[in-house]
Each structure stands twice: as C-alpha cells, then as structure tokens.
C-alpha cells in the first residue's frame, strides 16, 4: 500500500514535470541540440567509435530526428543509459527521446506513460547452441542448461515457453551479454538465449562461428522502437513521421544518393509531398518543407541504415527477415504521406 502511494506520488510528479515541459520541440530548438537516450553499448545499434562518434541503427534514428528538427544530424547529445535508468531519464525530461532497443509493451505504453512512435526493428527471443550438440529444434532442449540474462523479459519468456512445451531446464543466471558469451563458450551452459539480433551479433564475434547455430524457433515478440513522453503529441508526431519518412523513402526508392535530385520534383506525387516540393506536410509538423530531405540525407533511408549497421554486409550480418518491407514479405509498413 505504502509502496504504491510512493510510486503514485513519483508518477504524479513525473506527469507534472511532463506537462510543465510540454513543447519539447521548442525546447530542442532553443537548446540547439537533441538529447537522445541510447544504449551504453550494443553492437550494431549504438556504440561510439575510437574518436567518440556514436554510430549504429538506433543512433541513426536520433540523427535523423536531429536533422529534421535542427537541420544538423550532428546536433545530438547522446546520453548513454543503462536499462535500469532509461525510463526515468525519459520521464524526468533529462532526454528528449529514447532510442535504446526498447521493447514496446502494454505496461510501458500505458502504465509508464510513454508513447512509442513506431517499430524500427522486429526482434524475438532465440536460442544458440553448439552444432555438435545435435539439436535441430528448441523442442529438443528438455533438461538443457541455459544461460540467461536476469531481470529481463527473456527470463519470463523462457519459463513460459518451457512450461507450454512440458519441458524442464536448468537456468544459469548471467548479468551481462559479455559475461554470457564467456560462460557459453567455456561450456557452463548448453544454450544461450536472448534476442535473436544479439545472438547473431554475439556469434559473429566467435573465433569459429561455424561451430554454433541459431535454432529456428523464435519464442517471443520484441518490437523495438523509439519512444517519447506521453502528453506532447506534436513532438511524438515528429519522431513518428521521421521514422515513417525513412521507411517510405526505402519503399519509394529515395536514397541518400538521389534525395537531393528527387527533392527538385519527380513524377511521383507521394515523393513530392514527402520531400516538400508539393503541399506543406512539413509545416503541419511545425518544421520547414525540406525536413524529410535532411532526414534521408543524414544516414540514408531505412534500408540503407539497416544494411550499413546491422545488415548482411555488416559484421553482424542480420538478414532482413521480418524487417523487410511489407512489399517484400516483411512487417515494415507505414501510413501514407498524404
């Protein structure tokens, strides 16, 4: 009872803080910099290089929003956040948006008071095993020892999956991904389970990646996406339509290389509307008409961002799979620019 009162108070103060700082767009413009919460380090999604420049798939979203709002994809202050402090950092106003491979769930959307502005990566929990274990499917894992990161949804998903299939397992609780990697390689567990994208990235770093395989089963839905505080719809719209512009650009064949050319006007009215040579969609967002041109020029369209950071040509080598465009059998789909 006491606890809920305390949490309620905190939430109420948080809501007040949110209301009081309504107008994130104006704040960002006044500061001249977008404060974007990212992971403290996740391969392919967010990490600084040797010179301290952040790069990655989530970082690309931050840069795109900064390009749309401030006209400069480098006008971003990246705030590295651990999974424990990410939500409070957003609700307290320390950051303007969060792009930190965060799963869109009911309670985060409804109870914590955030607005998810879309999905930039459809992930799911998978399993990695040694090939010489002779296992071809997760349903053959009865009695296995499993390395699992504690305190995450993966732990609950795993318990659910094994219960549904009437199997038992021996959990080996692990704190971080790097630790799990060591435990798995040293043979402390037969199976390592976490999001499939992270498994692929981990496998890519092994000395002999061919000795390991990902099992075909994906046992959970983990739609990852950027989020903002609830109650500031104009700002949420900007983040949402920045992501949509990236996706629509891929759909319509607008790339980093040809966006400047296409911005002069094309035969396709939707491209013209998006890039601002026709209509005034930018003005409706409170931005200028070139906003989408800058978004795409910053790091390329959705497909280009995917390829250069996590796609098959990168070290991580993820295939598009569910993250292919809806026209190519995937789930990536946006409402039209109209």
């Amino acid at each position: 009872m006491k606890k809920s009162v305390l949490l309620g108070t905190i939430a109420a103060v948080g809501v007040m803080a949110g209301v009081a700082s309504a107008g994130t767009l104006d704040d960002v413009k006044a500061n001249g910099v977008l404060k974007c919460g990212v992971s403290t380090g996740l391969v392919g999604f967010a990490a600084p290089d040797a010179n301290g420049n952040w790069e990655g798939f989530d970082v690309g979203i931050c840069r795109a929003v900064a390009a749309a709002v401030l006209g400069d994809s480098d006008a971003v202050q990246f705030v590295p956040l651990s999974s424990k402090v990410r939500f409070t950092a957003l609700s307290s106003g320390e950051i303007d948006m969060l792009a930190r491979n965060t799963t869109w769930t009911f309670s985060r959307d409804v109870d914590l008071g955030f607005t998810f502005t879309g999905v930039n990566y459809y992930d799911g929990q998978g399993f990695m095993v040694r090939k010489d274990l002779g296992v071809a499917s997760a349903t053959e894992l009865d009695g296995a020892t499993i390395c699992i990161t504690t305190g995450t949804t993966t732990e609950l998903n795993l318990a659910d999956y094994f219960r549904v299939n009437g199997m038992s397992y021996e959990p080996v609780p692990i704190e971080t991904n790097a630790e799990a990697q060591q435990q798995y390689l040293s043979g402390a567990c037969d199976v390592f389970t976490t999001d499939a994208s992270a498994l692929a990235a981990t496998r890519a770093t092994f000395e002999n990646p061919d000795e390991h395989m990902l099992l075909p089963e994906i046992v959970s839905k983990e739609p990852l996406g950027p989020l903002v505080r609830e109650g500031d719809e104009p700002w949420g719209d900007i983040v949402r339509w920045t992501l949509n512009a990236l996706i629509t650009a891929e759909e319509l064949g607008v790339t980093q290389a040809n966006v400047a050319e296409m911005a002069k006007g094309t035969d396709n009215p939707e491209i013209n509307r998006m890039l601002g040579s026709e209509g005034d969609l930018g003005g409706m967002l409170g931005l200028d008409s070139d906003w989408a041109v800058r978004v795409i020029a910053a790091g390329g369209n959705y497909g280009e961002l995917f390829e250069s950071n996590i796609g098959e040509t990168s070290v991580i080598g993820l295939s598009r799979g569910l993250n292919a465009l809806w026209t190519q059998g995937g789930l990536i789909y946006t409402p039209p620019f109209r």
Binding site: S39, T40, G41, L42, V43, G44, F45, A46, A47, P48, D49, P80, T176, N177, A178, Q181, A201, T202, A204, T205, F206, S314, V315, I316
Partner: peptide
C-alpha cells in the same frame, strides 16, 4: 568496457 564491446570492431 561495455561501450567498447558494443562497437562492431571490438565486440567479444
């Protein structure tokens, strides 16, 4: 350390 492990050059 976590951050450096997060770069694709030094993952692992």
């Amino acid at each position: 350390i976590v951050t450096i492990q997060g770069s694709s050059d030094w993952n692992g």
